[in-house]
Amino acid sequence: MDLGDWDPAEAANLFAGTNVSAIVLEVPDDVFEVSTIGFWGVTTPTDAGGRRQINRCAHPLINTIFHPDDSDLASDYNTTQPGQDRESYGPRVRELVTAAVAAMGTAADPADYARQVSEAIFPDVLRYEIGTRANFGSANRNGRALQQCAPEVMFAL
């Protein structure tokens, strides 16, 4: 991917003018019989075609950041399971991150940085260690507190 003509001053806010809502589920720690849980959500509307998965998310913005102009790949991503992520989407993410990091000169080894990003976000399951403080940061993610700005973290990666 050639980013030579990219101008950060011409970047656009994809979320401008939209209304973003959230569903929050709070579950007591003692309900779980394990020390770490992983979760992700799906959208499965019911219509004339029946119930089917049309969207999924755990880490925010993965599809938006890595598949914005490729509707077929974005649609495929939304209908697959997280267990397929590393094999199916890891190569593309590594390629895009390597190109961006190399163009910006933000890491000594762009390919290794891209590998680390891919391993951090795939499979796209948000993990949380029961009984600990939630934190969604660039260095580590342990669940996500409501007040944390997750989009900034994802764009920083």
Rank of each mutant, 00 (worst) to 15 (best):
G4C: 02
A9S: 13
A9L: 09
E10H: 07
G17M: 11
T18S: 05
N19G: 01
N19I: 05
V20R: 14
I23S: 06
E26Q: 08
E26H: 00
I37M: 13
G38Y: 01
F39S: 13
F39A: 12
R51Y: 00
N55S: 09
N55A: 12
R56F: 10
C57E: 15
C57S: 10
A58W: 03
A58R: 09
P60Q: 13
L61R: 03
L61D: 06
I62F: 08
N63C: 12
T64I: 10
I65F: 01
I65Q: 02
F66C: 04
H67M: 08
P68D: 02
P68K: 13
L73E: 15
A74S: 15
S75N: 15
D76V: 02
T80I: 05
T80E: 03
T80V: 09
T80F: 04
Q81D: 03
G83P: 05
Q84T: 00
R86M: 05
Y89G: 00
Y89M: 07
G90W: 00
R92V: 06
R94G: 03
R94A: 08
E95H: 06
L96H: 04
L96A: 04
V97M: 06
V97E: 04
A99E: 14
T106E: 11
P110L: 03
A111D: 13
A111Q: 15
D112N: 04
D112F: 03
R115P: 00
R115W: 10
S118E: 14
I121Y: 07
I121C: 01
D124R: 11
D124I: 08
L126N: 12
L126Q: 14
E129Q: 06
E129F: 02
E129K: 02
G131K: 08
G137R: 09
G137H: 12
S138A: 13
A139R: 10
R141N: 05
G143Q: 11
Q148K: 03
C149P: 10
C149Q: 14
E152N: 07
A156F: 09
L157F: 14
L157N: 11
